[in-house]
Structure formats: C-alpha cells, structure tokens
Amino acid sequence: MTIGINEFIIASSLLFLIGFMGVLLRRNTLIIYMSLELMLNAVNLALVAFSRFNQAMDGAIFVFFIMTVAAAEVAVGLAIIVMLFRKKQTVSVDELNQLKG
C-alpha cells in the first residue's frame, strides 16, 4: 500500500482528535495546554503533507509561522497558569469556577 495524502490526513485528523480528547477529558490545565499543542501539531502535519503533495511552498511556510505562534501562546499561557497557581495552589480546572452563572 502506498502512503498517499489520505493516510497523512487521517493520521493528522486522529492526532487532532486525540488532542481534542485530551482537552476534553483532562483536568490539569497544563496537560490541557499540551493537548492544544498536540492539536496544533496535527495541523502542522496536515500542512506539511498538503504542501508536499500539492507542490506548493506556502503550506510549509505556514508551518513555520504556526510554530512560532504556538511558542508565543505557550509562553503567555504558562505565565498565566503560573500566576494562577500562585494564587490558588492548584492547576485543576475544577477549581477554576469563580466566574459562572
């Protein structure tokens, strides 16, 4: 069997889904955050595959940007999580329900 674009995309989608499940199921903000990164990664995979199969550079360039963006997001996100931890001594989302109703 040849590995075509479809296989890559399915792999990417599954990765995306696993990431989503992580976001959905986990209570630890850090792991949720990691799951988000995983989803971005899945997108990257898809992009690279498309770029390769479509013979177009733009996808690969986009990956470059996405990585940077992800890094920046992680930085800000972690900063917020750390501050929250300082305040509440927990990183569980269960405890983060002051804003509701």
Binding site: I5, M39, A49, G77
Partner: peptide, 27 residues
C-alpha cells in the same frame, strides 16, 4: 486570571479549529 485562562484555552482551541479549516481548504 481565570478569565485569562479561559480565554486562552478556548481561544487556542478555536484557533486550532480555524487553522484546521484553513488547512483543509488549502489542501
């Protein structure tokens, strides 16, 4: 901070979704 975290995670999630859509279109 809590609002920030909520916006952050949900925003990132939505960005990812948006991104996935873009990628599909591109592909």
């Amino acid at each position: 901070l809590e609002a920030g975290l909520k916006y952050l995670t949900l925003g990132a999630l939505s960005s990812t979704i948006l991104l996935f859509g873009i990628v599909l279109l591109y592909g």
